[in-house]
Design a protein around this nucleic acid. Structure first.
Lengths: 213, 213, 213, 213
DNA sequence: AATGAATGAGCTTTCATTCAT
DNA sequence: TATGAATGAAAGCTCATTCAT
């Protein structure tokens, strides 16, 4: 029987599944209760499992939190990599996709946003969080710089400093996230998307048509 | 010696003074330990006072945290109001001042920055924090909109939507804060200041000279 | 050895068993330290368990106290119901049994007596205690009234007002408890029993023979 | 001036007044909050004075409580001594007065009643309270025994054992107090007074006319 | 692999007491 | 005498972690 042969891998898979399940429950709990009020009992309850389960799958609560942060770090990267993969290999189009994906219904998740802010909030006190947060930014940042560099060569954008503009672009995006985070009802994702696109259009006016919705 | 005065605070200080002293100690503690790891013992120790003192001057730990948040909200407003008061009453100059003040050595305080992120991190879970954070933004935001509206009338900036540009500007500033917050060593306040100023220059090119350092 | 079983309680006991165990420890503690000096540490130590156990099985200390009061309320009722069940169904005999059971070695428990006084002492300040104390009295009182009514019909006790006599009888009993409570060494349970029986004999002289020991 | 001569005594008197004031506030607080929830802040507030005042006039909180108990002990004795003084020197009349005074509007004070129960509640744990409570009973008890002995000699009450009847009488009175304490709304002082008087009438039928209202 | 009762360190909070004013 | 800010020991309670089942 095939089943027998798969038994062991299945068990491993199931273990991995449990961890995933608990990480997703942690994301929900952080969004709902905040990082400082997230208890393991919230998490296990949200996962529909028993109290002690977490210390069985994670070394400690701290470990669970770090794994949760790593999860959303990887998840974020995956999201924009996928978006880029589904788009023509032209820097302007790709930048436009990146500007959009952060605010698109398909990828945007209020809970994950809350988790980012939660860990950013503790970053000054916990180097490990800071490191993982920065890892997220660095990959993304490098991609933006590359794209802007390619774009700057395509057009005549000699004045544009890709590093600075990329820093600004990323800052703008994350600042707009804050606006949504604080005022989900009054700040819409459509508006913020337009603001991010316009930023690109201002710096790369010859490709402005790429940065219209 | 000045030190003596600090080590042995007057045994009987005014209530308002003590509260201030404790709030300042709370800011330090949040920056150092994070919001979720700030203990009252940290705060009272940082203030050089006894354990019980906090519940004597504040209803509870939660109350202390809220008062701390209100304190930095008011402190922030005071800072930019003062900066504006010391500057000629011209919208472009005033916007430039606002762009600079957030990154100027005179006003910038890494601890307070950490406190902002700490509370933003809990904002999704605690409406009271969210409300106070938004109050900070609203006054500032309104001032930016007013200035941009005046500037738009001065020059021929018909295409500029002051509300959207102001949202972007504030987002950019706060996003740049995040970059500093996460990478204090690699992201300099001079660089971020230039990025913020350039944002203004892009939208208001006829006043670009105002937005050079 | 039996001792071992007591010293090392089963690590996993049923919830109901633990609650009972903690309530009994609470009774001991109240008798020993008084209500105002009963600490959770006394209780958990008396139960041979750890500090945190109480908040695991009871919402709060207050909840534990209320459950303790309910326990002795129910325990008291059970005691006299059992005593009545073991006695012929004749009102005079039954009244005699009720007069005796409160002072009989078999049912009398100095600790529980102390607990009653402890809660009576707080009754004016805490409606919830008052309510539970009254519940105890009401069931008992009704039984006394019924028996006296039956007895009054049997003999020619037209002058006897069962409600008033029952109130007096219950008051006498509880007052005698106070005498024992305050002077356990000089006031004996045999003496008080005789006083209570004589009260009945005075009101129901035709059945006086029932009210001799 | 006379004033100078009196200055010192006045000061002492004023000190005594303060203590009295604080003891009265303690009685109110115990009735309102219970003994276990009576805080010095309640007492000083009820007295309209400042926090630290109590440790100035009493060695400690415990000392204040003991003095409060002594106060109501003396106050109680004073009450029935005065009532006896205003009554003809005949044992039956005097017993009737004693039966009444405990329930008479003139002397009855719900707060003091609550204080008695509060201290009785702690009596099993605190010998000092027990001692003072017993002191109250003893003087009163002796007076009752004396009166009953005199009465027994007057009439032909050979069968009456003054000690036992006196114990019963006092128990009845205190038990009726409990009924009032627990159910101030449903148990009236008129009813309890009649029950106490009837007890005397039953034991001393030849003087029954003395024990009618 | 999973449960959930039990633990106990560590937190916030209370409050009698002290003491500079 | 009197005040009330300050202290700090001690309490109740929380909750990550453990472990018998």
């Amino acid at each position: 029987m095939v089943k027998e042969a798969e038994e062991k891998p299945q068990r491993r898979a199931s273990k991995e599944l449990r961890r995933r399940q608990l990480i997703l429950a942690t994301i929900k709990s952080i969004a709902k209760y905040g990082l400082s009020d997230t208890k393991l009992s919230h998490v296990s309850k949200a996962a529909g499992l028993s109290q002690g389960i977490i210390n069985f799958h994670f070394k400690s609560k701290e470990d669970l939190l770090i794994e949760t942060l790593k999860y959303i770090r990887d998840d974020y990267e995956e999201t924009w990599l996928k978006a880029l993969a589904a788009c023509p290999d032209e820097p302007a189009a790709m930048l436009a996709v990146l500007a959009c994906v952060d605010f698109d219904a398909s990828a945007f998740d209020r809970n994950k946003l809350a988790v980012w802010f939660a860990f950013w909030g503790e970053a000054s006190a916990r180097p490990i969080y800071r490191r993982i947060c920065k890892e997220r930014d660095e990959g993304y940042s490098q991609m933006i710089i590359d794209l802007m560099t390619r774009l700057a060569e395509e057009g005549s954008y000699e004045a544009v400093n890709p590093v600075a503009v990329s820093t600004g672009f990323q800052a703008l995006t994350e600042g707009l996230w804050l606006a949504i985070h604080l005022s989900p009802k009054s700040v819409g994702r459509e508006d913020t998307k337009l603001i991010a696109l316009e930023y690109l259009a201002l710096y790369f006016p010859q490709h402005a048509h790429n940065f219209k919705e």
